[in-house]
Amino acid sequence: MNKVLLGLVLGAILGAIDGMTAWFTPAVRAQIAGIVIGSTIKGMIVGILIGGFARRVQSPVLGIAFGLALGLLLAFIVALMQHGYYFQIMLPGGIVGLIVGYATQRYGRGSQLQRT
């Protein structure tokens, strides 16, 4: 699977799981559908961007660092919109970015292979 597609799929899956865990918080359970959709879209955006980065930069360390940074940044924006839950939103967001960053570098097929 190419790196961008892998990032997209992984981001979507992990984002959806991230959103679904909101069900365990009674205060937000009523908005679960919106949270899951938003979280999935956020995961997909993170995944595409990390996958695009992995296509250009072939370095596991930089890929992981970029994934972590991007995951944290997007989670921070979401937390800002929520006016709180910074830790609860940013920690999983950062780890999701880190996983996608590692996976795209380790398992994604390079763009040079697609051109041949």
Binding site: L14, I17, T21, F24, T25, Q88, L91, P92, I95, V96, L98, I99, Y102, A103, R106, Y107
Partner: peptide, 20 residues
């Protein structure tokens, strides 16, 4: 590495559910 990362993520999620 991938397995450890996913395990850490899931563990974190479980801890959040239990102690949030």
């Amino acid at each position: 590495t991938a397995i450890v990362l996913v395990a850490v993520y899931l563990l974190m999620r479980v801890l959040f559910i239990l102690f949030e």
